[in-house]
C-alpha cells in the first residue's frame, strides 16, 4: 500500500489544477466551434465567434444532412476503415518493433536505418500513385483507404520499439526463453499484454489518423461508393468555398450559410471520434500492467 505524505497531496492537487486549466484551454475553442455551428450565419459574419450561440439556427446541419444517405454510408465506411486499419497497423507495427528491440539480431542497425530513412525522403505524389495504381493496383477498393501512407509509420514503430527495449524488464524475456517459449509465443503472450500502454497510445493516434484521412480517398477512389466521412465533408466545404469565391469564373449563385456550415462540418467530423477515446484510454492508467502479468 502506498503511503501518502503531505507533499504527495500537494503534487496531486497541483496536477489536477494544471490538467483542469489545460482541459479548459482545449475545450473552450471547441465550444466556440460548436456554438458557431448552431448560430445564425448573418450574426456570425457581423459579430464574429464567441462561446454562446449568436441567434439560433440549424440551417448548417440541415444543409449537410440534406444528403443523409451519403453521410450515413460514409460514416460506416470510416468506422470500418478505422477499426480494420488500426488493428492491422498495430499488428505490423508491434511485430516490427519487437524484432527491432531484440539486441542480438544481426542487421538490427541496418533495419532500423531502413525504417528511419522513410521519415526523411519520399518520392512525391505521382510516383506513389503510380505504384498503387499500376503495380499494386489498389484503386477503387477498400484497402485503398487503409494501406497507402497510413498502414505503418516509422515513428510508431520506433515508439513501440523503445517501449519494448526500455520499459519491459529483460529478465521476463530471459526467463521465458529459458522455459523454452518460442519468440512468437513470447510476443503474443508476454510482450503484447505488457505493452498495452504504448499499444493503446499508438492505437489511439493511428485511429485518429484513419478517422481524419481524406487524401487516400481523393487519390485512389474514382467513384463515391467508398467515400469516407472526411472525404465527403471536405469536398462539401472546399466546393462551397470555390463556388462562393469564384463566381466570376463559375457564375453560380447560391445562398448558403458558409461560416456556420464550415463549423458544423468540423463538429460532425470530430464529435463521433470522441466516443472512441475512452476505449483506448482505460489502458493509460498507471499501475495496471506489469503487475498484472507478473503474477
Amino acid at each position: 500500500m502506498m503511503v501518502y505524505s503531505r507533499s504527495d497531496k500537494i503534487v496531486k492537487t497541483l496536477a489536477n489544477l494544471v490538467m483542469i486549466v489545460l482541459s479548459a484551454g482545449a475545450l473552450l475553442p471547441f465550444v466556440v466551434l460548436f456554438m458557431a455551428s448552431i448560430s445564425d450565419n448573418d450574426l456570425i459574419v457581423r459579430l464574429g465567434y464567441t462561446i454562446w450561440p449568436r441567434g439560433f439556427s440549424l440551417e448548417a446541419y440541415a444543409y449537410i444532412f440534406d444528403n443523409i444517405s451519403v453521410i450515413g454510408r460514409a460514416y460506416l465506411i470510416t468506422v470500418f476503415v478505422t477499426i480494420v486499419g488500426t488493428f492491422v497497423s498495430l499488428l505490423v507495427t508491434n511485430t516490427a518493433a519487437y524484432a527491432l528491440s531484440h539486441d542480438r539480431m544481426p542487421l538490427r542497425r541496418v533495419l532500423m536505418f531502413y525504417i528511419v530513412f522513410t521519415m526523411l525522403f519520399n518520392g512525391g505524389l505521382v510516383p506513389t500513385y503510380y505504384v498503387y495504381s499500376q503495380i499494386v493496383q489498389i484503386r477503387n477498393t477498400l484497402p485503398a483507404l487503409i494501406v497507402p501512407n497510413l498502414l505503418c509509420s516509422a515513428f510508431n514503430v520506433i515508439l513501440v520499439r523503445n517501449y519494448y527495449r526500455f520499459s519491459i524488464p529483460s529478465t521476463i524475456l530471459d526467463s521465458a526463453r529459458i522455459d523454452g517459449a518460442g519468440e512468437f509465443r513470447i510476443f503474443l503472450r508476454i510482450m503484447l499484454p505488457l505493452s498495452l500502454p504504448i499499444t493503446a497510445t499508438v492505437g489511439l493516434l493511428t485511429a485518429i489518423i484513419y478517422w481524419n484521412d481524406w487524401q487516400n480517398g481523393l487519390y485512389y477512389l474514382s467513384g463515391p461508393e467508398y467515400f469516407s466521412i472526411q472525404q465527403v465533408l471536405r469536398v462539401m466545404s472546399t466546393d462551397l468555398m470555390f463556388l462562393a469565391n469564384n463566381s466570376t469564373n463559375t457564375g453560380v449563385t447560391r445562398n448558403l450559410p458558409l461560416s456556420t456550415i464550415r463549423m458544423a462540418i468540423a463538429a460532425i467530423g470530430i464529435i463521433p471520434l470522441l466516443l472512441v477515446f475512452p476505449f483506448f484510454e482505460k489502458y493509460f492508467v498507471k499501475g495496471i500492467t506489469i503487475g498484472a502479468v507478473k503474477e
Binding site: V126, Y129, T238
Partner: peptide
C-alpha cells in the same frame, strides 16, 4: 468535384 480537380486530373493525366 472541383475541390478534387487539381490532384485528380493531374494524377490521371500523369499516369
Amino acid at each position: 468535384a472541383i475541390a478534387d480537380f487539381v490532384q485528380k486530373v493531374n494524377l490521371m493525366l500523369s499516369t
